[in-house]
Design a protein around this nucleic acid. Structure first.
Length: 356
DNA sequence: AAAACGGGGAC
DNA sequence: GTCCCAGTTTT
């Protein structure tokens, strides 16, 4: 491991200043009511790339629906995805349920308390592993997320690109040097809380910071220039015609997406990749793909939906199909009032407003 | 190392 | 519009 230069850094004073501030200022969050490893786990998965305020209502609903590892292990995937609907990164939900089933099958329903077994579970990477070990089991393990990298890059004036995988390992080495061995749970949560409330990406509140006196970036007046992060490339646009297909008996055609890739296992209204076939061949493409004869009617509206890596441009059309049953396993005929029982991505939830 | 993988809120 | 959020998996 890399040698960490800390000769001008008072570790115990830093721990005391940080943790005292945390005990005083920490928010009341629903996953801080006890140390149940399952609830800590669920919260940490939901919090990946997702703000605390967004997670709170989902966490309440999820724990109410699936209060234990046994309950989640026994649930239908459809119901789990429905509880995750709108939260994004849906592989988190599928991986969580897979991992919980492994915990029930292999570990007698007890969430592992060691890095090897915990880290081998689906969806538990280096951050989540450290978070569960420290918060649920009081183990002095680093839990390096975006907050930790920002706070530590400023504390120690580290200019490494935090977008690079190897940089996270560097920060883990720093955390191992300065983590409080007696209360690693409070230490890790305090750094993240500090990053969320004080040491923010823009305009950090250094005048309110409990560890200002320990901060090298503040001393040099460069806190706003850290951390260094390569910027993401912009998304490519993908145009589709999205179809609200109605049958004579007032049912709609919905489709289950494939079990891998984007929005895996969620439902949607059928979409025609317009850049590949053009507007003149929608009905023939649809017949070739699904074996259903379509009568495309009027334009209903348009929707732009931005993902992290691409942009959907949806032109919404009404259509009719003279069918009473469907062969294709991907498709379902569903009454209008039943559509919302299935898990849909937000883009297609918005499409429901255009149903007749 | 880079890309895939959602959605929302702050500015 | 930009940034990025209590990241992980796949390529």
């Amino acid at each position: 491991m890399k040698n960490i230069p800390l000769q001008h850094f008072n570790i115990s004073d830093f721990q005391e200043d940080l943790i005292n501030w945390y005990q005083e200022e920490k928010r009341d969050l629903p996953w801080r009511t006890d140390q149940d490893p399952y609830k800590i786990w669920v919260s940490e998965i939901m919090l990946q790339q997702t703000k605390v305020d967004t997670v709170i209502p989902y966490f309440h609903r999820f724990i109410s629906n699936f209060p234990t590892v046994e309950a989640l292990a026994a649930a239908d995937q459809q119901d789990v995805l429905k509880a995750w609907e709108g939260l994004g990164y849906y592989s988190r939900a599928r991986n969580l349920q897979n991992a919980v089933r492994e915990v029930v099958a292999t570990y007698d329903g007890v969430v592992p308390d060691n890095p090897e077994e915990l880290g081998s579970l689906k969806g538990i990477g280096p951050y989540t592993k450290g978070a569960i070990l420290s918060i649920a089991y009081d183990k002095p393990e680093p839990a390096v997320d975006g907050n930790v990298m920002r706070v530590f890059s400023r504390l120690f004036y580290i200019e490494d690109d935090i977008a690079l995988p190897k940089t996270r390992k560097l920060f883990e080495a720093y955390v191992r040097e300065v983590i409080d061995q007696d209360d690693p749970s409070s230490f890790n949560q305090a750094v993240m809380e500090l990053g969320a409330i004080i040491c923010t990406p823009k305009s950090p509140a250094c005048m309110l910071c409990p560890v200002q006196s320990h901060c090298q970036a503040y001393a040099e007046g460069v806190e706003e220039t850290l951390p260094v992060k390569k910027k993401a490339k912009k998304q490519r646009k993908v145009p589709y015609v999205a179809l609200l297909i109605r049958t004579p008996q007032e049912e709609y055609v919905i489709e289950k997406r494939p079990s891998d890739g984007l929005l895996a296992d969620l439902f949607q209204f059928p979409m025609v990749p317009i850049s590949e076939i053009g507007y003149d061949h929608i009905e023939s493409w649809f017949y070739q793909e699904y074996g259903i004869t379509l009568n495309v009617k009027n334009h209903a509206g348009k929707l732009k939906h931005v993902f992290s890596h691409l942009i959907w441009e949806l032109e919404i059309y009404h259509a009719e199909a003279e069918i009473t049953a469907i062969e294709d396993q991907r498709l379902k005929l569903v009454a209008k009032e039943d559509v919302a029982k299935y898990p849909f991505p937000v883009s297609h939830q918005k499409m429901m407003k255009y149903m007749g």
